[in-house]
Amino acid sequence: MDVEIGLRVDGEPHRLVVDTRTTLLDAMRERLGITSPKKGCDHGQCGACTVLLDGRRATTCLALAVAHDGAEIVTAAGLADGERLHPIQQALLDHDGLQCGYCTPGQVCSAVGMLAEAEAGWPSHVTADLSGAVELTDEEIAERMSGNLCRCGAYANIVAAIREAVR
């Protein structure tokens, strides 16, 4: 069944016809040619497709496009202002927090979403006091970024980059 929906991606409005089976990820990659979000597993098991969906970090491979008519999406491409990178992106370059680059846009979006969560005082699995203040230690950053797998093994540099960007 085909359905027409609207999406706003990186500030650009799009009208498109999707199969009800089409995921938000495939709608962007295959219908709109927006390939900044990557497909690494297609089952919510790697985080490569992470974007900011209506303001929050979210995987897009398990979201049906038809259920997100009208959604506002920001990808890693949209976080940069032309040549000017988002501080997280610049920090990843400075700390070489990437190698093959395939998980990287998802790491970027996840980091940006994660920082907003920490800013809002959200605890994590490794927060000792669930009701206390949040301090973004390396352990906290690593835990909060664990939904983004990186096979090249850039984790240590990703954590360093985020630590730096927060400072």
């Binding site: 390939t35 900044s36 979000p37 990557k38 990808t75 890693a76 491409a77 976080l79 940069a80 040549e83 990178l85 992106q89 990843l92 370059l93 400075d94 070489d96 990437l98 680059g101 990287t104 846009p105 970027v108």
Partner: peptide
């Protein structure tokens, strides 16, 4: 710095 780094952190490297 990685020469292709900008393209990778924005996801625009195809």
């Amino acid at each position: 710095e990685r020469l292709e780094g900008h393209a990778k952190v924005t996801g625009t490297a195809p």
